[in-house]
Nucleic acid binder design. Structure first.
Lengths: 261, 261
DNA sequence: TAAATAGTGTCTGTGAGACACTATTGG
DNA sequence: CCAATAGTGTCTCACAGACACTATTTA
């Protein structure tokens, strides 16, 4: 019997074929007036999916974690770091990349106002409802639309409902299975918005309550009642004592700061 | 300019080194009397971590998805299929496998009463509280214990708390980073129990409310009030009209069936 | 000074948490 | 027939949803 040390010294790597593993990152932000969700897409200049838009991302290198790879790519593409970045789901369906066997670990990154961020990509307006998901870039006047259907599937004894984009319809499309990644990420973002303080990653150091509420309404896709919203966030914020101009209107509002939960 | 078809024909695979990718599965069940959570572990008979206990799992083969690979392994190890199986998290930290570069996509599988399942592994009692996680197999009289600490970490502007097992202390340990996988999975299981109908994957086709409540209390690690618990599950179940013996006591209780939400 | 929007008071319904009680069953 | 436990009634509190109102600010 050999020892573990001896084993590791003589170990030769698996003869089985291995997949390539990438990270794809949905970088989400808002415009200056909290009226549009913004997602970063990059036009592919290589095969496959040449000319299609894709999420920023890239191969994970040996010696780094998926989180590090996502952070590195994010920094390369946007120049930002130390922002919210979290793993969403790992996509492994065979054939999702026509070249070869590629898995993708999807990440969600949250930035605030995208107007200050320089990138080689394009910021697309992102909207999603029960009927469709729509991405639009006014920079290149590109519109990407997918109809959405609710699909029910079983896991064990329980049925779940899920939103699935149908690939039908013409027009510009997203590369690979990146629609799926975007949909999954948005759904997770919504539950996080309802159950955690995630929203504060998308406003500045200080903010006004009208702006914060506009952000919630934008992400959750529904109107909220002012009173209830304020009661909800009240324990997590403190007034600075100043009054500043909201981005959503041109009136003065009280300025607040996030103090954690 | 070549077409995509030509590109794919001439495409040669990446020269970059690639990781191996495995799935590791936390197979969770209960004993006959709903008094112990059970987790399946397998004693390793190879280096590395020879003699340590590990989660069942294995390499993903080309042509199958991670989900399929997890389902295949589950069937091989337990003979069960068509049960609840869901992706939890992908572990990618460099060095997590001493042999070489290996990522692991963790899955959670839910079975019911484990006494009917034959396996080459061992069923360990699993308990977890704020202080420690403990696994115990009476088959081999093996006890595996890790102290647990609450660790706070920042993601963007927000601080999160997380349970982390410390590697200190002697005694039998788990292979690789499998403690982490187990802890993450249990935490996810708890939030799923509180927010979905997941529990019905761990009881039979019909069940009694005392049994179902015992299961909830076991997973959530706290006592529940009968009245509130019954009010909660009432809309999702229907009485069969029969009275059967509970597993948790020797009295008759009304028999129910899951009807979905 | 008027329209718009910041900000507050309060009512309702629902669900979790809690406790006290009655009904039924096995030994 | 009695101890144990199945099963019910009801109170409280926190919070989401909803609406009506007052205060302040810019045009």
């Amino acid at each position: 019997m050999i020892t573990e040390k001896e084993f590791l010294e003589q170990y030769t790597d698996s003869i089985y074929e291995k997949p390539s593993v990438t990270t794809d990152i949905l970088v989400l932000g808002v415009d200056e007036s909290f009226s549009r969700l913004k997602a970063l897409l990059i036009k592919r200049d290589e095969h496959p999916y040449l000319g299609f838009y894709a999420l920023p991302g890239g191969f994970i290198k040996k010696g780094e974690s998926a989180y590090q790879a996502a952070g590195r790519k994010l920094l390369e593409e946007t120049g930002v770091k130390d922002i919210y970045l979290d793993q969403i789901y790992t996509f492994t369906k065979p054939g999702r990349d026509p070249r070869t066997w590629v898995m993708s670990i999807a990440y969600l990154a949250l930035v605030g106002d995208v107007s200050k961020i320089t990138t080689s990509g394009e910021w697309f307006d992102l909207s999603i409802d029960e009927e469709r998901i729509r991405l639009y870039s006014d920079k290149s006047d590109t519109e990407i639309v997918y109809p959405i259907k609710e699909k029910s599937f079983k896991n064990g004894r329980i049925s779940y409902k899920n939103l699935v984009a149908s690939d039908k319809g013409k027009g510009v499309k997203l590369a690979f299975d990146h629609v799926e990644i975007i949909i999954e990420s948005i759904l997770k973002l919504r539950t996080f918005f309802e159950n955690s303080d995630l929203a504060f990653n998308m406003v500045g150091e200080t903010f006004t309550l009208p702006d914060l509420q506009a952000l919630y309404e934008l992400v959750l896709g529904k109107k909220l009642y002012k009173t209830n919203f304020r009661a909800l966030v009240a324990p997590r914020i403190e007034a600075t004592g100043e009054k500043i101009k909201s981005a959503t209107s041109n009136k003065l509002s009280a300025e607040y700061r996030y103090i954690g939960s």
